[in-house]
């Protein structure tokens, strides 16, 4: 069974993780632009970060047989630095149309401040102009209200619900998100938010339609194998394999495939792994024998 992890911050992960993902059947990953655990203080830091998402990280993933895509956006936390956010907004179009960018995201609310709303709206307009779907980060605090508000703002800007993936859902938000026709993604954290056990029950209750599973693995305590592990648990608990495939592969493909840049052919007829290759003169290897498939 093939899997897609449509929300995983691979820049923060090791090559061991890439090997484990490939071994577990993950064929493609989407790395949303987000924050780095501490606020950036200059626009150049954003520029180099976005450049690495479309450059080095994409290359690094391919060296381990994984197709890497990303989303470009200004995250809600850092939207609160208004002067810097203005400069980042000027930068975003330079990356939003590059190869491998499959959405604008992750954007939305953190503390639900006026500044967050301003840059959320500005980025929805950018998404329309660049013709990309949107990945919404729903807030950890006041989640229910923040989720409803995020969807209302998307509709106000003329986006269709099926162009928007609402992420970090829980049992409290899922019904409203599905009722309004948005994609409902679930981040499976080992301890907080959703766990695999709860995810099984969500799929049992709501079925497969427009539900997407992801790991959101990053530099914090998280599990990059959350998608394949949850898929296995679903199967063990008697969930139909078509539903497992939809929630752990097919729905992400349909949602982000709207970008025109997220195609099954990329991983079903892949270019061979060749670890002799270099990116701007640099290798992922440290003297090891290059793997060539």
């Amino acid at each position: 069974m093939h899997f897609i992890d449509p929300h995983i911050h691979m820049s923060a992960r090791t090559t061991d993780d890439y090997e484990a993902l490939a071994a577990a059947g993950v064929v493609a990953v989407i790395e949303p632009a987000f924050w780095l655990g501490q606020p950036r203080t200059s626009v150049g830091s954003f520029q180099d970060y976005y450049a690495s998402l479309v450059g080095w990280e994409r290359f690094r993933a391919a060296q381990f047989g994984i197709c890497h895509y990303c989303t470009i956006g200004l995250n809600s936390k850092e939207a609160n630095d208004d002067a810097l956010a203005e400069q980042v907004m000027e930068l975003l179009p330079l990356f939003a149309a590059k190869d491998g960018v499959v959405a604008i995201g992750e954007i939305g609310f953190d503390d639900q401040t006026p500044a967050e709303e301003k840059y959320f709206r500005a980025q929805l307009e950018l998404a329309k102009r660049v013709e990309l779907p949107v990945m919404i980060h729903t807030p950890h605090r006041d989640k229910q209200a923040g989720t409803l508000r995020s969807m209302a703002i998307c509709l106000e800007h003329g986006l269709r619900p099926d162009q928007v993936i609402v992420d970090h859902n829980n049992e409290e938000t899922v019904q409203a998100v599905l009722d309004q026709g948005f994609w409902a993604a679930f981040t499976l954290y080992p301890k907080t938010k959703m766990g695999s056990e709860r995810m099984v029950e969500v799929v049992r209750r709501y079925g497969q339609q427009r539900i997407i599973v992801d790991s959101s693995a990053d530099w914090g305590v998280s599990d990059p194998l959350a998608v394949p592990k949850t898929a296995r648990l679903m199967l063990a608990r008697g969930i139909d394999s078509a539903q497992v495939t939809a929630t752990c592969y097919g729905n992400a493909l349909a949602a982000y495939g709207q970008s025109g840049q997220f195609n099954e052919a990329d991983w079903l007829s892949p270019t061979a792994i060749d670890q002799r290759q270099l990116f701007e003169g640099n290798s992922v290897l440290r003297g090891q024998q290059p793997l060539i498939s």
Partner: peptide, 14 residues
């Protein structure tokens, strides 16, 4: 139009 330049410059590849 700086946005048009940035987006078209990327889109030109496709």
């Amino acid at each position: 139009d700086a946005t048009a330049l940035a987006l078209a410059f990327g889109h030109a590849g496709r």
